[in-house]
Amino acid sequence: MANEHLFKRFDEELSRLDSRISEMGGLAESQLARSLQAIRERDSGLAESVIAADVRIDAIEKDIQEHVLQMLALRQPMAIDLRQILSAVKMATTLERIADYAKNNAKRSLVLMQGAALPRAIGGIDRIGRLVQSLLTDVLDAFAKNDVAAAEAVWKRDEEIDDVYNGLFRELLTYMMEDPRTITAGTHLMFMSKNIERIGDHVTNIAELIAFRVTGTSFASDRPKGSGAIYRPA
């Protein structure tokens, strides 16, 4: 990020850390995309492959933690280096969580495939999924470029996710009330949309971590929040 250290190996270690994060980010992105595809196309093979691939992300997270532990002990980083290293651990944890949600959705999609297709509800999941997917891609790009402005733009868009999620929640409730036979599937779909909404929250966490590592501060204003309408009685 900054110019070179007198002690060259430190630079190598820092850039290795960033490339591991990027690698993990790429995997999380692909896990989310493939889980959405599995849901959309009722592709059980793909869902199984998403589930199986999760161990790779867990392994990278462990590797990053080990690497960070060593850097803290051996390099005693300060200032921007310290922030970069601390944010790397948090990024790794966050990306691991994102991948976990994608895996959970893949598992639930297998259950959904047992029953009848619910094209309208699946369409809703796909909509929020694509939105979150694009924000994840943007935030990972911002990370690769240390672009705080781009990170902030992503951070501000969390509200959109909340709104789409609230709409989807009501839609699913309506289906279940109209036709009680859809309750099992509807409940899974609710958890799935909640998982995607949580991924969106983690995306904003990543945006905050980018600001922290580059500037040492978080974004100035409070993030705009959705209406919270679903928590109110109808």
Binding site: A2, N3, L6, F7, A79, I80, R83, G216, T217
Partner: peptide
């Protein structure tokens, strides 16, 4: 040591 304002301070304390 966490967020120096000056580039020269940052360079010095991080060994650059």
């Amino acid at each position: 040591f966490t967020n120096p304002k000056e580039a020269r301070t940052q360079a010095y304390i991080t060994g650059r």
